[in-house]
Nucleic acid binder design. Sequence first.
DNA 1: CTACAAAATGATAGCGCTACCATTGTAGCG
DNA 2: CGCTACAATGGTAGCGCTATCATTTTGTAG
Lengths: 346, 346
Amino acid sequence: MKKKTVQPPPVRASRRGTGNTTLTDVARLAGVSAITVSRALKRPAVVAPATLARIHDAVARTGYVPNLMAGGLASNRSGLIAALVPTVAGSVFLDTVQALTDACDEAGCQLILGQSGYTGFREDALINAIVGRRPDGIVLTGIMHSTEGRRKLLASGIPVVETWDLTPTPIDMLVGFSHERVGTEVADFLYRRGYRHPAMVTADDYRAGLRRSGFEARMRSLGVDVVNIRMVSAPTTLQHGREGYAALLAEGVPVDVVFCSSDVLAQGVMTEAQARGLRVPDDIGVMGFGDLAYASFLHPALTTVHIDGKTIGQQAAQFIFDRIEGRDVAERIRDIGFSLVVRDSV
Amino acid sequence: MKKKTVQPPPVRASRRGTGNTTLTDVARLAGVSAITVSRALKRPAVVAPATLARIHDAVARTGYVPNLMAGGLASNRSGLIAALVPTVAGSVFLDTVQALTDACDEAGCQLILGQSGYTGFREDALINAIVGRRPDGIVLTGIMHSTEGRRKLLASGIPVVETWDLTPTPIDMLVGFSHERVGTEVADFLYRRGYRHPAMVTADDYRAGLRRSGFEARMRSLGVDVVNIRMVSAPTTLQHGREGYAALLAEGVPVDVVFCSSDVLAQGVMTEAQARGLRVPDDIGVMGFGDLAYASFLHPALTTVHIDGKTIGQQAAQFIFDRIEGRDVAERIRDIGFSLVVRDSV
DNA sequence: CTACAAAATGATAGCGCTACCATTGTAGCG
DNA sequence: CGCTACAATGGTAGCGCTATCATTTTGTAG
């Protein structure tokens, strides 16, 4: 006797349904109309308890799973939130992504994630692909977008939240902080700590560039005319950090502190220092940016800049949900600031 | 005069379209039928060049972006591949996810990513949410699924690829390797290296458990009766590694090597050793699992187990594309094995 | 010039669900 | 008893695209 297993339905051969169970099948079994089944699953409060019970039973017996493409088409609500981040690999954006994921879980929608990398080209391709899905909201990282991408976003009518940067003229809504100000305050801090020969190991992306500009300008205003810069390509890695610091050392000019554009780079700088028998912070101070989860567990514990990525994600989600549900978004721009976290590495 | 900007269309107020440009609008402008526009965008080879040009012009002028919900409903092809991984945060699964993303880019579809965590509960919730999207394929991590989840996957008729483990009885297709065998071969290797007092800092998830079983069993067969085990909760962190090694040291029993269930844990063990003035590998050997991108750049460079996550992702994608396109999948189970990478930490 | 085949294009029903309006039943009030 | 308001349920057109079959147009051989 044949083993009793659930057989997958056949691939559709003609325009006559896909073989999957539909609302209509469930309705027939429960003895109600299809729209009542839809209400039972989406807005159970408007369905009589006895009817609800019969419908849930029919759903269980048939194994029915709603087709969200059909529902999305009919309601013009896809139940998707799209987020573009440069990368998820060991990055500062993880808390933001996690907060967006949690907010979607709570709201009963789903996050679709795209990695835009650090060139504008891939962001445009992703914007095109994503707009096709008609997400209920789009979360972007940064404020630098192509003219074409910006136009397509505006034309789509989809709520957009830019994050992780600041501008008075966002596409729609924005939650972030000033990268120049980060650089400025780190310069102040390191100067006050007595460092007079600063260097940077920094990525070549736009936002890292803003932090570098802020850092260099403030250092100049404090009388430190030269900041040695080692540029590495984004996304940053521990290897980049090691190589960056090795290159600084090879130059032979005095360096008493290295400000890195990410914690990962800072970790690499510290590893290279350790490999060369140099002590942090005795021989060289190291500062990072991002306050990744492991920053406080490095040895020495890393001094860095903390960004509340979680709040960025939560606020971005709130902006979108408010817009979707027709509520006024009073403040469309929110500056969440940042804080310096002083540990042992400077 | 009002600034010339693209105005977002109004939120739909009645069942009369959403205000967005549709195929029909483009068709009217190009002087062809809607189905010809659809062909121009999806299968341009069957449209005359002059007609193609008119259609592309109309698309550009209207800013039309196809509605993939409608297309997916009509064709029963969503253009989505769903992947469930326990976590993306600094994990061994990144190469697999990246390979899936690249394969989707090349094939013109999109990856929808879910983080299932390390409890079965969340995987079931994700399976339910994902099946609603009718993805063209589903990639799972591991082989341990609930009865309910397994049944829902089978009933959906969607191609499923299990990854990162091995079983002769997969749901559908599988690409992975044996975690017990990893443990066994690491035990052999460390024993040959002369280590007689092994310990483990290992996560409490299922696959890490398989590696531990294999490791302990082989050590016993080699006459090493005791393997000190420190369990930490998944997902693993540098902090867990530091704490795990600190706990081993606090026990006061002799340990000459620590096998960690992940590179992150190994990094934590090395950091704790460094903080206590212990030299790796002189005073304590450390081995990891996963061969993360930074493993070779740690100091000392980490000895670990390499898993070809990229090939897992590529093969999983190939399985799905073959199935979608109606090609026979001859070998539905592929064991990609693993390799030991001997560096400086043991 | 004609016939035939291939290429190009068109018509339409339907994919599965839902917004919107309609209907029915019942409780409560005057 | 009659009327009204509200809860529960139903009918249906339509969301935007495409599979499938049909028709038209074009190119070429005889």
